[in-house]
């Protein structure tokens, strides 16, 4: 009886390991707490960055410790992000977000990050950044545009689309990942998250499904 139990346990364990190994499960047989994160994850420290802005200033995440930081991946030629009246910026939704953000937490900061590779659409990343700043200026809600030509910061966060939003709490941990607003435009996830953070409440939802153009990263 005891032998059978041991044998059964061994078979179950081996079977589980076999399934995990076949699937290449990165977590199999490892202590979950030691898992290294290859992208931003909710409730984990936000990846550090230091990026130059279109305005020539350098923006370093560590300088904003104690403040809520909103990062929005942006592309001026993407119809979901910055191009055309139906885009997040062209439709006025971004301006509404930033206005709502200021009301919810006047200390919160909002950055647009441009990880578009050099040469895409005939522009350098710096030129694309300048075009981004022009789109925002037209939308009446200018925010610093950070340049990430090699895509290292975008990849560190796991930014997939434009737009794609990451919100970092005052504690430096990622509090929200997803779309800036709901598909029907009725729910502003960014403003809701910042309002919750300001009130010391959990951000719900902490993640949403983002849609948009794929970020045009430089090859690694």
């Amino acid at each position: 009886m005891r032998f059978t139990a041991v044998l059964t346990a061994a078979v179950v364990t081996c079977g589980s390991l076999l399934i995990a190994a076949q699937q290449g499960d990165p977590h199999a047989g490892h202590d979950h707490s030691k898992h290294t994160h290859d992208k931003a994850e909710i409730a984990h420290d936000a990846p550090a960055f230091s990026l130059k802005g279109v305005d020539g200033k350098t923006y370093t995440l560590a300088d904003y410790k104690g403040k809520v930081v909103v990062l929005e991946w942006f592309c001026s030629s993407c119809p979901a992000s910055g191009r055309g009246e139906g885009s997040y910026w062209g439709s006025g939704k971004a301006a509404a977000t930033i206005e709502g953000l200021r009301k919810a937490d006047s200390d919160a900061v909002y950055f647009a990050v441009n990880s578009t590779k050099d040469g895409y659409d005939g522009k350098s990343n710096a030129e694309e950044g300048t075009a981004s700043a022009e789109v925002m200026s037209k939308a009446g809600a200018s925010v610093p545009v950070l340049l990430d030509a090699d895509g290292k910061v975008g990849r560190a966060y796991g930014a997939k689309t434009t737009p794609h939003v990451f919100i970092i709490g005052a504690d430096g941990k990622v509090a929200y990942i997803g779309a800036p607003v709901s598909k029907d435009g009725k729910t502003n996830y960014v403003v809701n998250a910042v309002t919750a953070l300001k009130a010391g409440k959990p951000v719900e939802p902490a993640t949403t499904k983002n849609e948009g153009c794929g970020v045009k990263y430089a090859k690694q």
Partner: peptide, 8 residues
């Protein structure tokens, strides 16, 4: 569900 990018 468009996946990593795109829109439904």
């Amino acid at each position: 569900n468009p996946g990593d990018s795109g829109a439904a």
